[in-house]
Design a binder for these strands. Structure first.
Lengths: 336, 336
DNA sequence: ACATGATATACATACGTGTTGATATGGGAA
DNA sequence: TTCCCATATCAACACGTATGTATATCATGT
């Protein structure tokens, strides 16, 4: 085991026979430094394998080069793609990403603030407004995904509409264009302990479009709050057997839609002949299930790029437009 | 907009009319403090909403309470489950997790070291040994997933065998038990720019078991290095049409297995009658594809728990066993 | 000749915290 | 009394870095 003391700026200075200040100037490249000394410092840095301590720099106010991404559900394919893209783009800007899910506590908020992240991205249907406000008051650069409705967002907070709301409306319209009138909405299958998602924008989009298109619509057409696939299937079957008329199903995500398809099959009905099914996310199950699922694709890469870019803008303090909206893309397959 | 200066220990001291040192003692609870003053400090902390700056504490050597998880492919369901579990367990220990994928550069290694993470977890088939060594030399607590072979790992580095190697062997044995003799291996569909995965333990498991079971085996039975589903399908069809005998297919993950099933269907062969197919990961596509895929389930929650626990052990310096291995679990469905 | 600007260096301070060592008080035991 | 220990406090330093301020040298232009 080699000697293990952290190599510091003082070591470099000693090795290069210059003052610490010179070393600092070379590293930050913001002052005149004699050519000869500069070279000696560079050699010393390489030789000693020195790297400025990021923690100390952060304390001095240079930023932590870290971004935190606050989400709720991180365990689905659609989300992991976004994370992956963000990770990539963030790194191009020199940032590392911390990820966390379902941390809706004051304790957590305080921790985040005390860690001096350079920026925060929130994509959560359950993260309370009150906590978002604390981040805003702490003046931390912030970008929000409009997975749900926010109120009174200042101009210096980035907002990204990833198209979920309009996408959900598109889904309904498409089912209508296929002659469907009696549409069921299947919410996501939640893991225990997660809140209800009644302010989810996909659901809002669904409801708004149903009303705007003057389709008949009651609460019975929404299946939500289920914790297992079996429960969802049972609910669907029960409602249809109780006389609810259904010729179309809109799954909040592809998983929900697939579960709905199993339920339909179990009732010896055919997809899409008897009931059309449409999903959301264009995840891999939508391509491999049978029949293949018509679904809505999001511009995940573009969205991720926009989020990181916006954050960078805010961090740099440049006065640019911090609102962006994206459209979803309908992928036609066999289930409609 | 409220006044925005960071509230610091000095503010608390002033508010409570005590010295800064007293505040520190109250927070760290490591010295005698007068009961009255203690209460005043506690009130002040609450009133001012003070929280010790994590960055400054880190600089003073108290640890950053951050862990970094280095991976290669983070965009699949199996992995996102592990991340999700880790996030949960880590938070219970007071840690936040940074996530990053495919950062195989010296620059990145230096960055990680300079950020003073309390621990590192590596699950990558491509992260070079040389960099791992740097982490070890820097004395950063480290846990490795045996996704590939490592050499000369010191005793104070945690190692977790998640069962991929033995699981792969189980898959082969199971196909053999079903009377299959001519088995094809389908590697993962890689995104451009990723390295070949010839030291992947699943592949090793496959090869070793094929040889041990004395099945005929040539390189032609391995389909790897493809960048798209179409390419994989084409390769399978080509080889079979060229006369390669195939009655079983082992997909490195469920996605590969599903693609293989499409190829088989396109040749008007039947799964499982003509060719048995087995996957790996028990991801959701394995339940929704048709026929439903036999696959191998990993103990993701237990593995994640073990990783965080080990890291905690190393950080605390307690002398415990830092080796753990898990078994996979065969899930029988329709494809075999 | 002088003023000016570019080049070049170093000291001292600050970021917000944890901890050492010194000091003070009071009570009980010798 | 004197000694010891528990209680209680705080000034000063250290972690590793960035930078404002001060100072010095030198070439250039007037």
């Amino acid at each position: 085991m080699t000697n293990n003391k952290r190599v510091t700026r003082a070591d470099v200075a000693k090795y290069a026979n210059v003052s610490e200040t010179i070393v600092s100037y070379v590293i930050n490249n913001n002052r005149y430094v004699d050519k000869d000394k500069r070279e000696r410092v560079e050699v010393a840095i390489r030789e000693l394998n020195y790297r400025p301590n990021n923690v100390a720099r952060t304390l001095k106010g240079k930023g932590s080069n870290q971004i935190i991404f606050i989400a709720d559900q991180i365990t689905n394919e659609y989300f992991s793609r976004i994370v992956s893209h963000m990770d990539k783009f963030a790194y191009n800007h020199g940032y590392l990403i911390s990820l966390c899910a379902n941390r809706n506590s004051q304790e957590f908020v305080s921790q985040v603030i005390s860690r001096q992240y350079d920026g925060i991205i929130i994509s959560s249907t359950s993260f309370p407004d009150e906590y978002v406000e604390q981040f805003i008051n702490a003046n931390i650069p912030l970008v929000l995904f409009m997975n749900r409705r926010y109120h009174n967002i200042p101009k210096n907070v980035g907002i990204i509409d990833s198209g979920l709301y309009s996408g959900a409306r598109e889904c309904v319209k498409y089912l209508i264009s296929k002659g469907r009138r009696h549409i069921l909405y299947i919410d996501r299958i939640s893991s225990k302990g997660t809140k209800s998602t009644m302010d989810d924008v996909r659901l809002s989009g669904f409801v708004d479009q149903m009303i705007e298109s003057k389709l008949e619509f009651t609460e019975e057409q929404i299946i939500a709050g289920c914790y297992s696939e079996e429960q969802v299937e049972a609910e669907i079957i029960k409602r249809i057997q109780n006389g609810l008329k259904v010729d179309g199903i809109f799954g909040r995500n592809d998983m929900s839609a697939c579960v709905a398809m199993s339920a339909v099959k179990k009732m010896n009905l055919k997809v899409p002949e008897d009931i059309s099914v449409i999903g959301f996310d264009n995840s891999s199950i939508s391509r491999f299930c049978s029949p293949k699922l018509t679904t809505m694709e999001m511009q995940q890469e573009e969205i991720s790029h926009a989020a990181i870019d916006m954050l960078q803008m805010i961090i740099e303090g440049s006065e640019s437009d911090l609102r962006a909206s994206f459209k979803t893309n309908l992928i036609l397959r066999e289930s409609t």
